[in-house]
Design a binder for these strands. Sequence first.
RNA 1: GCCGGAUUAGCUCAGUUGGCAGAGCGGCUGAUUUGUAAUCAGCAGGUCGGGGGUUCGAUUCCCUCAUCCGGCACCA
Length: 639
Amino acid sequence: MVAITLPDGSVRTFDGPVSGTGLAADIGPGLAKAALAIRVNGAIKDLAAVIEEDAQVSIVTARDDDGLALLRHDAAHVMAEAVKELYPEVQVTIGPVIKDGFYYDFARPTPFTPDDLEHIEARMREIVARDEPVTREVWDRAEAIRFFTDQGEHYKAEIIQDLPEDEEISLYRQGEFIDLCRGPHLPSTGKLGKAFKLMKLAGAYWRGDSRNEMLQRVYGTAWADSKQLKAYLHMLEESEKRDHRRLGREMGLFHIQDVAPGSVFWHPRGWTLYLTLQHYIRTRLQDAGYVEVNTPQMVDRSLWEASGHWEKFREYMFTAESEDRILALKPMNCPGHVQIYRQGITSYRDLPIRMAEFGSCLRNEPSGALHGLMRVRAFVQDDAHIFCTEDQITSETKAFCDLLMSVYKDLGFEQVTVKFADRPAVRAGSDEIWDKAEKALRDATAAAGLETVFNPGEGAFYGPKLEFDLRDAIGRDWQLGTLQVDFVLPERLDATYVGEDGRKHHPVMLHRAILGSLERFIGVLLEQYAGRLPFWLAPLQVVVATITNAADDYARQVHAALVDAGLKAELDVRNEKIAYKVRGHSLTKVPVILVVGAREARDGTVAMRRLGGEDQEILALEEAAARLKEEAAGPLARC
RNA sequence: GCCGGAUUAGCUCAGUUGGCAGAGCGGCUGAUUUGUAAUCAGCAGGUCGGGGGUUCGAUUCCCUCAUCCGGCACCA
């Protein structure tokens, strides 16, 4: 007797062992058709797997996340089968499930073309139509290696070679295609259905290592039904509309041009936004006890040698030569800050010193990494270095985390992922120092009430690190803020303070940024709001638009009143219909349009229209200006 | 940096056996004086990314460089 408990608590008993297929059929024909796999006591298995003893079992369908993942995994296998049929010389490697889809990496002397993609997808649909049974086989390791080697599948043989000794070697067979796979899989290729699509081609290094050969990666997406697929494709289209590069052009904020790859030409409105954001963060830093400095852009190589950058960071540094010296454009501000710190003698009583700088940094990022505002070669961070004693690490870190969360909240970001990265394999400093630094950082994050995701071994070579990732509205994560505990640089650059004991000690440096680079932050901000920035941040807040030229003089008065109130306002007295003007300014995401015609001119009022709104509000001019002025103060109003 | 794709007017894009360069939007000018997401007409606007080659002739074919896009690697 085998008793099976279903998720609803009901129990079904069978005379003997029963397969997932049998169980699903026993429950009902509808479920039998939808069944993709089973979950036995929490572990997901093939539908064909036999349940030998009493267990908690649920039937997995494409409606649950595990089922969808299975579907995608099978899509990868079906794609590999299609590729092997069409191009027998290709070697298959790995094909995992990823967010929204799957990919498979193939080894092939010549890359695939977009035309090939169409053929592959068409063949996949044939394979689905064939409804080939998918069966699991357990092989002897040596035999499996020999098998794949004989087939010319050297990557597969290598994968098996590297599997742990005790791991079972399972192969899945569908039609003529046989692949190494842990499973589980769908019972047959027909279960994949039709809701999939091959999306793009890309190169990808074998085992993710750029020293290895490059494979051909084919990305695809797969869903439970065509409605979901359609919704996904629609979502992608919508995402494109909020791409910050597109918004930047449409809103007239900035452009990037091939004469200066990785650098931004900020237009008047974009620069206004930049300055507004900078003013905000500068004020917050001042209020938090930071002092602001500015350090040289070009610095002799000797300083970079002393700091370790010449050794560790050389390839990212731009250099210039002058009078037989090599100068480097600074990629970071930290060595400069240590030079300021070192002027004169510092007492423990002076610590902590929180030294901030909006310094222009240049890094020669690899050309393939450049991406709009998100990854540039010239940028400004809201950078600061906190020089403190070891005892102060916790309190300074907590204060920083609090400040950071408050800033993110002001700017409209509520969901922050905090990653804690600990000691990497290659590092400087003793284990005792690392123990101390990691503990201090952990204590501080706990004190700040932050939950962290552990990111093992990803710390900086000089110390552990917190990374603050923001998710934009499209669901992408961007690392913006960071805090790094550094015991190494103060020593290398000989920064000291005199302690209570009258002796010299090296301070600890906390490298920290909240916005990260202003460039990247603005990119994230634009995507987060789809260009519809909060009023206080909007580079153009109000347009005064006339209905007829008869209202021009009054419109000028309105505009002047707004400017007097400190608002960023423009006047639109073009000889155009109001609908035309409204549309134009709406497309550039101006948050407020004040419409004035003969009535408003007569009454001394304005018709206020919010971006995207359908109704208007008639207000006295003074009232409107006062209200908007208040709104424009933004979060700094409470400072 | 690596793999693939792209580069035509300010923007979005058409342009096939290689034969004088196109549209829409935007801009300018004129008419229209307009009530909340596109009024009408006219005009201007191009080394077809740069360089080299093949050809009587190249936006089109070949080579090369640059930049951009999508991945990969990188991201102190």
